[in-house]
């Protein structure tokens, strides 16, 4: 049971979506890279679309449904994370952001993350560095240097140039994953003793 868990959060809206296509190629490349180093892994892919109602409900009620709680726990427990958002109005999509709005803001601390996005044209590619990277910096995750952006043409005439970017980013994710990720203290298991609270 030394499998590394790679969680994939992808926020495409259609079936199949180009975000999911990219997500699958990234997670396969990361798994390949790990197996090349003799490390077994498993991939859990989360389609945010499937939890769209649960996410809204969580924002309104303050707690996740049982189904949503399970995927939030998967992401929290993962050794590494791959995220893919479509580009909407010059940023990640609202649905993508909702997932990270309801996730505990400490859940990604110290976790290697591969940033990826899709869009209609190459002209949006800086969404990776101007929208996704600051979000994951705020969450204290460790985004790897290479992000992967795929435009429509990357699925056709430019497919050959997408492949090396995927391999590069997956390699960086695996390298980062081999460092220890810090574990979070459980405030219910180890509450701050009251004398410490009293003494401020």
């Amino acid at each position: 049971m030394n499998d590394k868990l790679i969680a994939v959060v992808t926020a495409g809206l259609t079936t199949p979506s180009s975000s999911r296509l990219l997500a699958d190629q990234l997670s396969a490349a990361a798994a390949d890279e790990l197996s090349g180093r003799g490390i077994t892994s498993r991939v859990e892919t989360i389609e945010v679309r499937d939890y769209a109602h649960d996410l809204t409900n969580n924002l309104l009620t303050g707690f996740p449904s049982a189904e949503l709680r399970e995927v939030l726990e998967t992401v929290t427990a993962a050794d590494a994370l791959i995220v893919v958002s479509p580009t909407f109005s010059a940023s990640y999509s609202g649905l993508f952001k909702m997932f990270f709005d309801v996730l505990d803001d400490k859940a990604l601390a110290g976790k290697p993350v591969l940033l990826a996005a899709t869009g209609g044209t190459e002209r949006h590619s800086l969404v990776l560095d101007f929208a996704l990277r600051p979000l994951f910096a705020y969450l204290k995750a460790l985004p790897v240097p290479t992000g992967v952006y795929a435009a429509s043409t990357d699925w056709g005439p430019n497919a050959a140039s997408l492949r090396p970017r995927i391999t590069q980013a997956a390699g960086e994710l695996v390298a980062a994953l081999q460092h220890e990720t810090p574990t979070q203290a459980d405030p219910f298991a180890n509450p701050t003793p009251f004398e410490d609270l009293l003494n401020g």
Binding site: H53, T56, N57, L60, T61, S65
Partner: peptide
């Protein structure tokens, strides 16, 4: 005010 326009009565009752 607290949970309106969110989960269904059935879902909320379950949770």
């Amino acid at each position: 005010p607290v949970y309106g326009h969110g989960p269904s009565l059935e879902d909320f009752s379950r949770e």
